[in-house]
Design a protein around this nucleic acid. Structure first.
Lengths: 142, 142
DNA sequence: ATGCTAAAGCGAAATCATTTCTGTTTAAAG
DNA sequence: CTTTAAACAGAAATGATTTCGCTTTAGCAT
């Protein structure tokens, strides 16, 4: 699977700068979720000068545009995950090895509308994330 | 509705100290979710000396015991909510006024098992929370 | 009741991920 | 090629949360 990162950025009205492209490419190449610090480290060879604030800013922009997903972690650090699946769906994340698996057809489709109707309020967003140990890590722990 | 806070603490094998009881009572009296700092402020009259770390510790203990719920907020602060409903359920939270409404029968019952079966992994926890504006706040914003 | 011992509780200070700020650089548009 | 706005770097600040070592309390035997 290959992606047109420049077009993705364009669709978010962000310039396709080398750093943004590199962050996006790195995220897409990773199997699991990564922290801002991870990204800075891995891109240090490519960019002599790359500050953490820049990484944070880029990740924010990408997450705001919806092309990467913010992972909520018990350790309260930020993590991000790139997922080619553009359908509405959620994730099963491994707390040990950081692997992410898609949960398709999660049964929440239409929930927002139902809830809005029931409570009379307005649904702005919802969080659904399943935390656990992936098959390999679960077996290892056993 | 009145609760036996001392018994609740006992069931978690925590001593029913005045501060724990006060935190629990305060949470139960609040309609919405509150921050550790809120709690410290509101209990300042009752306890001349009450440090934030103590509040955090108590909230942790109560949340670990499952009698209060941790709220995940976009502003990255911790909030907690006391909910008398002991059935497995989730919440609709208002980002404006902090009101919380229960979502019963959320359609996730059994999901953990299904996911475990499908991925081969082990589900440790899941997060489901719906963020929005309650009826009043939505009307006000309109 | 009193003394003893281990657990629980406490707040000052430290921590550390994240953000802000300011000045600089870079790139798109005319 | 100039103009103008967006991106960027890095130092420093921020502020929620945790650590640490001391103090208090409760449980229990005497």
């Amino acid at each position: 699977m290959s992606y047109r990162f420049d077009e993705m950025l364009k669709s978010l009205k962000l310039k396709a700068t080398p750093k943004r492209l590199a962050v996006l490419a790195l995220l897409a190449a990773e199997e699991g979720y990564v922290s801002p610090e991870d990204i800075r480290c891995k891109l240090q060879g490519e960019f002599a000068r790359l500050g953490l604030p820049t990484v944070y800013r880029i990740l924010d922009e990408l997450a705001a545009g919806g092309i990467i997903t913010k992972i909520i972690h018990p350790n309260r650090q930020l993590y991000y995950y790139f997922c080619g699946n553009t359908e509405h769906h959620h994730h099963f994340i491994c707390l040990s090895c950081r692997r992410v698996e898609d949960l398709d057809g999660c049964g929440l489709h239409g929930m927002d509308g139902e809830i809005a109707a029931k409570t009379g309020g307005k649904v702005l967003s919802h969080i659904l994330q399943v935390n656990g140990l992936c098959r390999d890590c679960a077996e290892e722990a056993a």
